[in-house]
């Protein structure tokens, strides 16, 4: 009897110890999974979002890249979603604070990023209702961007414009190279250059001589060289002016020969200006790509990832199915 009594006591103690330990573990996990740290003071913030794009209870809250808390609960309101989060530290909010929901990975999952604001701005309390930015869905945004890009390139005529502009530009440069047209001639016609050079040379000589006081006006008159030179100059000048007025020759043609080049230039310049203005102002799609650094980075990342994904698609097809089934199951 004594032996069995001892045995019973041992059994009682064992069962009791087991139950006690498991209840302790159960309590521990209950606390952990309720995302409340009862052993340290916590700070509650309420943020209102237009929508939360799949944010879940328990998702992390980051301030400056440090995980400081978790989403405790969410409630749907008439005009949005109110998210309650518990933070381990009191945030030092400024008027220009920003609260965003960001994707934590391409596979899904969200986190809240809390930017406290610039130190110059006025300090505000975190007790009040905060307003969060509408979250960016990287997939949706990229799809839209690519769509507009394609639309404007193909349907908006940018591509055509660019094509024709390029065509014209190449024609112009060809002409210039071949010495055709006015500018071409300017570039290619040696005579004009020599003439002008001669004139300036001569004029320079004359003035130099006049400065040095060499010869006199009479001497000027008698000196045949000077006379010839002067004659040549006047000839040349008259030739130039005549040709200009007649729309002939180089400069003349440049201004008067015909309207094609002018119109081409005007058109090209306008088109180019338009494009560059838009680019500079960040309008349109490419413009946005240039000006919005973040979007650019995102798009670049996305596109590289999309490419990697597509490369791997054949391999990963079973995985995609697996993950969708796996995560779909919960």
């Amino acid at each position: 009897m004594k032996r069995s009594h001892m045995k019973e006591i041992t059994m009682e103690v064992t069962v009791g110890a087991f139950i006690f330990m498991i209840l302790l573990a159960l309590g521990f996990f209950t606390i952990i999974f309720s995302y409340e740290n009862i052993f340290a003071p916590t700070h509650s913030v309420a943020v209102k979002f237009d929508h939360v794009r799949g944010l879940r209870q328990g998702d992390n809250v980051f301030i400056r890249g440090v995980q400081v808390g978790r989403v405790r609960s969410m409630e749907i309101m008439e005009d949005g979603v109110r998210v309650h989060a518990t933070l381990d530290y009191p945030p030092n909010l400024r008027e220009d604070y920003r609260v965003e929901i960001l994707p934590s990975s391409l596979l899904g999952g969200q986190y809240i990023s809390l930017y406290e604001g610039s130190p110059e701005a006025l300090s505000i309390s975190y007790d009040q209702m905060l307003y969060g930015a509408t979250p960016v869905d990287i997939m949706e945004e990229t799809t839209a961007t690519i769509k507009t890009l394609r639309e404007s390139l193909v349907e908006g005529g940018i591509l055509e414009n660019l094509e024709s502009t390029m065509l014209r530009l190449s024609r112009i440069t060809e002409d210039i190279e071949a010495g055709r047209g006015s500018l071409g001639k300017i570039m290619a016609d040696e005579t004009l250059y020599e003439n002008i050079q001669k004139v300036t040379e001569n004029l320079n000589n004359i003035t130099s001589m006049m400065e040095r006081g060499e010869g006199t006006l009479g001497r000027l008159m008698t000196d045949e060289t000077v006379y010839n030179n002067l004659l040549e100059i006047s000839d040349n000048i008259s030739l130039i002016s005549r040709r200009i007025t007649a729309g002939e020759g180089t400069m003349g043609r440049l201004f008067a020969e015909d309207d094609t080049l002018y119109e081409d230039l005007v058109e090209s310049a306008a088109a180019i200006r338009k494009i560059t203005t838009q680019l500079a102002e960040g309008e349109g799609t490419i413009g946005r790509l240039f000006t919005d650094e973040e979007l650019y980075e995102e798009a670049k990342l996305l596109i590289s990832e999309i490419r990697a994904t597509i490369d791997d698609f054949r391999e990963t097809a079973p995985l995609t199915t697996f993950t969708s089934v796996f995560f779909g199951a919960f």
Partner: peptide
């Protein structure tokens, strides 16, 4: 591990 599980799951 403790990020997504909730008391409901437990």
């Amino acid at each position: 591990a403790t990020q997504y599980a909730q008391n409901k799951d437990l």
